[in-house]
Design a protein around this nucleic acid. Structure first.
Lengths: 232, 232
DNA sequence: ACCTGAACACCGTTCAAGT
DNA sequence: ACCTGAACACCGTTCAAGT
């Protein structure tokens, strides 16, 4: 009848392993795969690792940095396709990148603000630069182009994948649909005429077209010449 | 010495006005202008209106919808420039749109997920469609193009404006800078060669170039023909 | 140096109950 | 129909204190 007095430190985990950045990241990936990024919080992660949230801050600067690291990890699964010309391969690689992010919309949203800087992200940049060079795109144009291409893919994933995920964003989208179809002929003639077109196409068609728009644009738009000094 | 027993309902506000969607929105705009969007929370807003957060849900579906309404309100300040050709005016309008969002980065982030559907947003779409029609862009191409143009502007604001806003995102960006400059010649030859170019240009130069990329891309990329049925 | 408990300062949303 | 108090179920981050 005497109450248990043994420490409750270990729950089922056999021997609480020492904390490490790699261990934290691994636990984060596991939670994300099982329950999605929104559940990957400092508190939840700490709970999973059988410690307090404060302990994580020794290895991870903050939530944004953690998310960036997760994305970099995820990009390790990208395989650059080896078939076809540079244009085809460019489109395929970016489609693959977008597809990965489609599965993790919340991550795409994070990535827009806090870019990863890990090995897989650098590898992606290198591949994109190489493909653009094969396409004969001048250096600065290619360098700036990488940004545009990745931004389009990331933003599309961020924006699109939420559609229908929660009831909230569903409502939001319905509201826009109704607004477009309700546009008055007299005040908004173009919108009224093109309401159906504005909403047409499958996500895949839109993505494919959008990527070709980016590639064509990068190809056809020379960068300004004399730019010295870093951004901002 | 007897304690006050009068109700503490009104603080300094003279006569608590009845709640309304317009009133809520007005209060939201005020808080945002004074303290930024992150402070525009349901709780803070309720406090400002001298009520509890639950009361707001009669007029506002959720936070996302509130943010979309705020953005639409903000777009009311946009003035479509009347000078120049369609291309110039298109670029100027989109620059203006981006500039407005630059001042409210958190709003840009919201806008990527929950698009506004108010009168000012519809007006913007109408103007964009009109300008593209003047440029001779075919209907579906123009309709899809509007999406691409607004997405680029919104994503750029979302991404860029946070740079340096908080210490966190500063760190994040420094990490990428260091990673790019540290790219190894042997494994990442293109990245190593173009590290400076990847980070070159002012935000304004990047935006201007990016917008021209979008316009050129939309102009040069035909939309697929047979698309029946709505998105998703 | 690494780890922790506890606290600080918040969130969005729901629900039963009132008017 | 509109409004509310109170609760539910959480957050990120910091800091003093321990080992």
């Amino acid at each position: 009848m005497t109450p248990h007095t043994e420490p409750r430190s270990r729950r089922e985990r056999p021997a609480k392993p020492a904390l490490s950045r790699a261990g934290i990241l691994a636990a984060a990936m596991e939670i994300m795969r099982a329950e999605g990024l929104p559940k990957v919080t400092m508190r939840r992660l700490a709970q999973e690792l059988d410690t307090g949230p404060a302990s994580l801050y020794v290895y991870v600067a903050n939530t944004a940095e953690l998310h960036a690291a997760i994305l970099d990890e995820l990009l390790g699964t990208l395989a650059a396709p080896a078939e076809g010309g540079w244009h085809e391969r460019l489109e395929a690689l970016l489609t693959e990148y977008t597809t990965v992010l489609f599965a993790h919309p919340a991550l795409a949203r994070s990535a827009l603000v806090a870019r990863p800087s890990g090995p897989h992200y650098l590898g992606l940049i290198e591949t994109l630069l190489t493909l653009l060079a094969q396409g004969g795109v001048p250096d600065r144009q290619a360098a700036w182009g990488v940004d545009v291409l990745l931004q389009y893919a990331t933003a599309t994933a961020a924006e699109h994948a939420t559609r229908g995920e929660t009831a909230d964003t569903r409502d939001e989208w319905d509201a826009l649909t109704r607004a477009l179809h309700g546009a008055e002929e007299r005040t908004h003639p173009r919108t009224a005429a093109l309401a159906a077109e504005l909403l047409s196409g499958t996500p895949q068609q839109r993505l494919s077209w959008g990527l070709r728009v980016q590639i064509a644009g990068v190809l056809h738009t020379p960068a300004p010449q004399s730019t010295e000094g870093a951004t901002s």
